[in-house]
Amino acid sequence: MNEFNGEIKKMMIILSKATLENVYAAFVLANGARMEGIEAEMFFTFFGLEAIHKKKLEHLHVATVGNPAMHMPTMLGGLPGMEALATSMMKKEMEKIDMPDIHEFLDILKASGVRLWACKLAMEMFHYKKEDMYDDIDDIITVGDFYKQGSGLGTHMLFI
């Protein structure tokens, strides 16, 4: 009855960054889990909160500085407009592969049963209020609450 063969039952994904590539990675992993019949919950903390902040989520950028995969000299990546350029190029590519924008992606996650939690400590630190955030977040909770959500066999945690 209590047989457990090591399968993944639940993914707990912590998003601490607001760069577009990290936000998308976290969203794709959460959605991909649900598509496989795996439960998924997300905890948005520190800069990761921007991905669920109503006014900021439309304006997330790709990192052009400190990102070796951009194959761009760091000095150049810091020039005005560089991030915007890289971001608009990436968004165009994403549209081609049918990748939703951040807001639509949140709607998809929510409809798929992904639970979305905002970190209480980070919310206080940035002086964000619940009404600043995406309407369908589940709640604002502590780290301890989040760990409790993850209890049970077959839960995996991922920090992005």
Binding site: M35, D98, E104, I108, S112
Partner: peptide
């Protein structure tokens, strides 16, 4: 026509 969750939606 390839299927995805987004497309279903």
């Amino acid at each position: 026509s390839p299927l995805s969750i987004r497309k279903i939606g």
